[in-house]
């Protein structure tokens, strides 16, 4: 589904990604772990088209199409979804209005007819039930005055409504207490399917107790330095990132 080859990217003249390679197939869940500053959020930004990042080398293919040529909204239309580390507040726009605009923009991109208010509301109410979210959420402005946990759950709710092919979760666990994290993880797990892939970016192993990955990659200094199964996350939790970095230095020499 997603192929990243030798991806280099910089922000404000600083090289952040220095040759990332990654293959993600439908149905797989990949965890990307790494210390602060290793390039995790840059990778998420590059994949979703944030224009602060400049790609200097490499390519990214999504279902065979060159992703890097597409505007952010086209990537969403193709089926890529980013759950933001810091979801943005938009006062004055209700969740309901925003989500309907979003769903219909994506449907339009895919050549599907737009949903009228009634059809849309039916779908949204189902998803709200599945995710155990309050119905008054729809009437509230997007993320305005939400707690950290509510914001992250709202991201997962949007993901559920948009039904993307590839979900990228950028530090979705950051700033959440254990109950909020469990609620978010349950929402994510409910969306796992054989047709959908996920990239879970996280600093800590704890989220991966709840969203169990098929693969774990360690990102360090802009490169994936180690890949393994879910047990790799436990190893990192026990020993930290330093031995991994040391291994990289040793190998390079």
């Amino acid at each position: 589904m997603l192929t990243i080859r030798n991806l280099h990217a910089r922000v404000a003249d600083k090289d952040i990604l220095r040759g990332v390679n990654l293959d993600v197939k439908a149905g797989e869940v990949h965890a990307i772990m790494g210390p602060n500053g290793s390039g995790k959020s840059t990778l998420a930004g590059v994949l979703t088209g944030k224009d602060a990042f400049e790609v200097t080398q490499g390519e990214v293919l999504f279902e065979g199409k060159n992703l890097l040529d597409m505007a952010a909204e086209e990537r969403a239309g193709e089926g890529i979804f980013l759950a933001f580390q810091y979801p943005v507040e938009i006062p004055g726009v209700t969740n309901n209005y925003f989500l309907r605009a979003s769903v219909n923009a994506v449907r339009k991109y895919r050549g599907q007819p737009e949903l009228d208010a009634a059809a849309f509301l039916k779908i949204v109410k189902e998803k709200i039930k599945v995710l155990h979210m309050p119905e008054d959420l729809l009437k509230r402005s997007v993320n305005e005055g939400f707690s950290g946990g509510e914001k992250k759950r709202n991201e997962i709710f949007q993901m559920a409504v948009l039904e993307p092919k590839l979900c990228i979760l950028d530090e979705t666990d950051s700033g959440l207490d254990i109950d909020a994290m469990k609620a978010v993880a349950d929402g994510v797990n409910a969306l796992r399917s054989k047709d959908r892939a996920m990239i879970v970016i996280t600093h800590y192993q704890r989220l991966l107790n709840h969203i169990v990955p098929d693969f774990v990659h360690v990102l360090s200094e802009g490169r994936i330095v180690k890949t393994g199964g879910k047990e790799l996350a436990l190893e990192l939790e026990a020993h930290g990132y330093d031995p991994m970095k040391a291994g990289l230095v040793g190998a390079a020499n």
Binding site: A71, A72, A101, S102, A105, S141
Partner: peptide
Amino acid sequence: TQLFYLQSRGIPLDQARRLLTFAFAND
């Protein structure tokens, strides 16, 4: 950041601009 958030949800840039302008006025 608000514009990018809307775009990342599939909303084209000009529509995103209109939506944010509306939100400003709707206050």
